[in-house]
Amino acid sequence: MKIFLVILISFFTFSEVFATAQYPDKILYNNKEYSLLTNPLEKYFEQHEDKRPKNTEMSSALWRGYIATFEIIENQLYVKEIEIQVWNEKSDETEWKSVINDIFPKPEDRKIDWFNGLLTLPYGEIINYVHMGYASTYENYTIIEIQKGKYIKSKDLNFKEYDNFKERQFEAYKKSNEYLERRKELKKDGLKKKYIDGFLKIYVTEYTEKLLTE
């Protein structure tokens, strides 16, 4: 929740960091690699801040400091790779370095059985590019529901259906007690009341953990 609040408030204060399009994580799904507009490891790092990758070259296009690659194998989510940018003095430029062995040294620890949430996989042409976060619109999307690291179900949508899906997902979410608590929390943290619902609707797949509508 904390990382979500940081993104949310920074978005509406036009922070330079979050006003830049971000490098997404990646996922291998049905033998194909996709960009992943969800960052599952952030939930882990919120609870294990000491494990967050260090000595990385931070940039406004990579606020979290790393790119993770995931894979769904026999309906189970795994982290396959974690890379950071480091400075190479010989070439005088940045390069990618694997740090997965530093964070998850044991292969069995790479099973993401603690994650609940929706994974958003965009694909096809970019319909509308927005130079901020993951705000660009793609031609198609796959939404995957994950519970305790297990694949539950998925939806394939074009960009118009995706917008309608988020609308319905948000309307269902508004009926929950969690919605009321989150509004209070966001208001307490300084977000103007008039912005709250609009942003929550846009980023509904980031904080809801189940497909609430069919």
Rank of each mutant, 00 (worst) to 15 (best):
Tyr134Gly: 00
Gly124Asn: 09
Lys80Val: 13
Ile27Glu: 08
Ile72Ser: 00
Glu125Gln: 12
Asn116Ser: 13
Glu74Arg: 15
Asp163Ser: 12
Ile143Ser: 08
Ile100Tyr: 01
Pro24Gly: 07
Val79Ile: 08
Asp92Ala: 15
Val17Cys: 04
Lys54Tyr: 07
Ile143Gly: 03
Glu209Pro: 02
Lys106Asp: 14
Ser15His: 01
Ala135Gln: 09
Leu212Lys: 04
Glu83Met: 14
Asp189Leu: 14
Tyr195Trp: 14
Trp63Glu: 01
Glu145Val: 00
Asp113Cys: 01
Met132Thr: 11
Glu178Lys: 12
Thr213Tyr: 06
Glu209Val: 12
Leu212Ser: 08
Phe14Glu: 14
Thr56Trp: 01
Phe70Asp: 05
Asp189Val: 10
Ile146Leu: 04
Ser91Ala: 15
Tyr173Phe: 13
Leu36Gln: 02
Leu180Ala: 13
Leu77Pro: 07
Leu186Asn: 03
Ile112Gly: 09
Asn88Tyr: 10
Tyr29Asp: 05
Pro107Trp: 08
Asp25Cys: 04
Ala61Phe: 13
Val79Ser: 05
Thr205Ser: 08
Leu191Thr: 00
Val17Asp: 00
Gln22Arg: 06
Ile27Asp: 07
Trp63Tyr: 12
Ile202Tyr: 02
Leu5Lys: 13
Glu178Val: 07
His48Trp: 10
Asn101Ala: 12
Leu77Lys: 06
Arg52Lys: 14
Gly149Glu: 02
Ser98Ile: 01
Glu46Cys: 09
Pro107Val: 08
Ile72Phe: 04
Pro40Ala: 05
Lys194Cys: 13
Leu119Gln: 00
Asp163Ala: 14
Ile27Gln: 04
Lys148Gln: 11
Lys175Met: 11
Gly124Ser: 09
Leu180Arg: 15
Leu180Tyr: 13
Arg52Phe: 09
Phe104Ala: 02
Arg183Ser: 07
Lys51Cys: 07
Lys80Arg: 15
Arg168Gln: 15
Glu206Met: 11
Phe199Tyr: 12
Ser136Ala: 08
Ala21Ile: 10
Lys175Val: 02
Arg52Ala: 09
Trp114Val: 09
Phe14Asn: 15
Phe45Thr: 00
Ala21Leu: 08
Lys175Asn: 15
Asp113Lys: 04
Pro40Phe: 05
Leu36Phe: 01
Tyr34Glu: 05
Ile196Pro: 08
Phe12Ile: 08
Gly65Leu: 05
Val6Thr: 13
Asp189Cys: 14
Asn177Trp: 04
Lys90Asn: 15
Lys111His: 07
Asp189Phe: 14
Val6Trp: 04
Tyr23Leu: 13
Ala19Tyr: 11
Glu46Phe: 06
Leu28Phe: 12
Asp189Gln: 14
Met58Ile: 12
Thr94Phe: 02
Leu180His: 12
Ile7Thr: 03
Ile73Gln: 14
Leu191Arg: 04
Gly190Asp: 02
Tyr195Lys: 10
Phe165Gly: 00
Leu157Lys: 09
